[in-house]
């Protein structure tokens, strides 16, 4: 449950009137979004639609121009909180993993718990080994990131984020930088995390995953949320022309077997 700070009946994530520009380019044009505890929300949409910026505003990697982002009732967009306070609420998974290349897998995971949560090294290592087991990376604890495949690196990145015991996990295109054959192992870890009740917001192009794992799909275009709803509704019966266009384009763009899979997304449900 949310802490005492929780205000009103809002969700664990509450985004209100969020606007963000880079120079003259307005990337987010007033976003309202609520996510309730344990909910898994996939955000889809064409590149440049502002999905990533939304996720980055949620974990305060970007300062918001206007509006607010509240996590567990804590207005993180106010800029008044320390990085450590934010990290306890939300974990972020990057497209490029961003593991620390100079540290071992184990040290990657223990650094923040030891340095920001004041955990002892032994305690943190026990925690890290547990998390590595969960993502199936126990045997790589002493490896360096560069010795791992992309999929392995991303699984370590997930373990690293979980070590801060966040209430929410954000995924910014977590499989977009992976070779196709490595996508599955990462999605599998994410699916298990979703099952465990973690609140998740996933920026993704993996439509099958979005359909199968998420409770809600949000379609963004041109800095605004165009439509959202249960995956079955958004994928099989999109209400807006732009959503239909986007899903159509995906269908055309993907070749061979994945046409069938994406086709299922659009028509099959």
């Amino acid at each position: 449950m949310c802490d005492a700070m929780e205000s009103g009946s809002q969700g664990i994530i509450s985004v209100r009137g969020l606007r963000k520009s880079f120079g003259r380019n307005e990337v987010l044009k007033g976003i309202d979004l609520d996510v309730s505890e344990g909910e898994v929300v996939s955000v889809i949409g064409p590149s440049g639609s502002g999905k990533s910026t939304l996720a980055r505003c949620m974990c305060r990697l970007e300062r918001v121009d206007c509006g607010s982002v509240s996590l567990c009732g804590l207005e993180v967009s106010s800029g008044r909180h320390r990085n450590g306070d934010i990290a306890r609420l939300v974990g972020m998974i990057f497209q490029q993993f961003n593991l620390y290349p100079h540290l071992s897998v184990l040290q990657n995971i223990t650094l923040s718990p030891v340095r920001t949560l004041g955990m002892s090294r032994e305690e943190a290592e026990v925690l890290a080994y547990g998390l590595l087991a969960e993502v199936g990376m126990s045997d790589k604890a002493s490896a360096r990131p560069r010795q791992l495949s992309g999929g392995q690196q991303q699984r370590v990145a997930i373990a690293r984020a979980l070590a801060m015991h966040p209430r929410i996990m954000l995924f910014d295109e977590p499989t977009s930088a992976l070779d196709p054959e490595l996508v599955g192992e990462v999605l599998e870890v994410m699916a298990r995390l979703a099952e465990s009740g973690m609140t998740m917001v996933i920026i993704t192009h993996e439509m099958t995953f979005a359909r199968d794992v998420s409770d809600r799909v949000v379609f963004m275009d041109d800095g605004a949320i165009v439509e959202q709803g249960a995956p079955s509704v958004v994928f099989s019966n999109p209400q807006h022309a732009r959503t239909r266009q986007f899903l159509q384009r995906l269908l055309v763009a993907s070749g061979g077997g994945s046409v069938v899979r994406t086709g299922e997304c659009v028509n099959g449900l």
């Binding site: 306890r88 961003n98 620390y100 690293r160 801060m164």
Partner: peptide
């Protein structure tokens, strides 16, 4: 830049 971003979302202060 990704290294700054990762350490930041993992709760490390600027100095750390």
């Amino acid at each position: 830049a990704g290294q700054w971003e990762a350490s930041r979302v993992l709760g490390l202060s600027y100095a750390k």
